[in-house]
Every structure is written in C-alpha cells, then in structure tokens.
Amino acid sequence: MDVAKYQSHAQMIGWEAATEIGLTIEYMPATDVVWRKYWALYCHLRLAIESEQRIFESNYVSLLL
C-alpha cells in the first residue's frame, strides 16, 4: 500500500481504486435496487450511532457499540 496515497487504515476508497489494488469488486450503479438498499442501511446506521459508537456487522446482524 502506498502511504502517500492512502494515509489512513480507515480511509475509504472507490471501486476503481479497489480494483486497481487487486480486490474483487462487483460494481453496482446508484440506480441498482440492491445498491439503494445498502445505501439506505448505511444512512440509517449513520443516523443511529453517536459520536463514540462503532458499527460491527456480520452476515446476519449490525451491532452498535
């Protein structure tokens, strides 16, 4: 990893950059029904957490701590 390009472990990257570094990506346009459900979940979780909380997710649950 290039620390000049990715300065933080938690830094988000786009699908293009993820593909460039060798990750397997399934791109979904913003109009895709499944993507919109993921986006709605993300927005609801962001609204639900407080400043010091974190979200832990598994294949069957999202947990706020």
Rank of each mutant, 00 (worst) to 15 (best):
R36C: 03
M12P: 01
E16T: 13
G14W: 12
Q11W: 02
W39D: 08
E20V: 05
M12L: 09
W35R: 15
W39C: 00
E16D: 12
W15H: 12
A17G: 04
P29K: 07
G22D: 03
Q11S: 13
Y27M: 07
V33Q: 14
I13E: 00
T19G: 05
M12H: 05
H9V: 14
I21D: 00
Q11A: 15
Y27A: 07
Q7D: 10
A17Q: 12
P29G: 07
I25W: 11
T19I: 01
R36P: 01
K37E: 04
E16N: 07
E26V: 07
G22Q: 08
I13H: 01
I13F: 08
T24P: 11
E20T: 08
E26N: 11
V33S: 14
T19Y: 05
W39E: 10
E20Q: 09
W15P: 02
A10Q: 15
P29S: 12
R36G: 00
A18F: 09
Y38V: 10
S8R: 14
Y38P: 02
I13A: 02
V33D: 10
A30N: 11
I13R: 02
P29L: 03
V34S: 06
M12F: 06
V33G: 04
T19H: 08
I25M: 12
A30W: 08
A17K: 10
Q7M: 06
P29Y: 07
E16P: 01
Q7K: 15
A30L: 04
Q11R: 13
Q7V: 14
M28V: 00
T31A: 10
L23P: 01
G14F: 11
I21T: 00
G22K: 03
L23F: 15
G14H: 03
Q11I: 14
H9Y: 15
E26K: 13
T31P: 09
A10W: 11
W39M: 07
R36K: 05
Y38A: 12
I25D: 03
L23T: 01
E20C: 00
A18V: 06
Q7I: 14
E20K: 08
A10D: 15
D32I: 10
A17R: 08
T24E: 15
